[in-house]
């Protein structure tokens, strides 16, 4: 689980859910670097940076994405 400000690499996204398919189409694939930029002031949704774009998604979707932080991955 990333904290705001941290960058990580996507390990897995569960398959099949339509909203996650859209996230894949927007470039969130295993191996993609993502930056957890910030939470909205009320805690949800979150803002992430991926492939040069800024995306907002809700915790419900974001929490399904398994990410390895870059530090832990030794990058």
């Amino acid at each position: 689980m990333l904290k705001p400000g941290e960058t990580g690499v996507i390990v897995t996204l569960p398959e099949g859910a339509p909203s996650l398919t859209r996230l894949r189409e927007m470039g969130l694939l295993p191996g993609t670097r993502v930056e957890f930029i910030r939470r909205a002031p009320m805690g949800d949704p979150v803002e992430i940076g991926v492939r040069g774009a800024l995306l907002s998604l809700r915790d419900a979707e974001a929490s399904l994405i398994e990410v390895e932080t870059e530090r832990a991955a030794g990058v």
Partner: peptide, 9 residues
């Protein structure tokens, strides 16, 4: 609805 929203530059 999953709110997947791009925050454009």
């Amino acid at each position: 609805s999953a709110m997947i929203l791009e925050l454009p530059a």
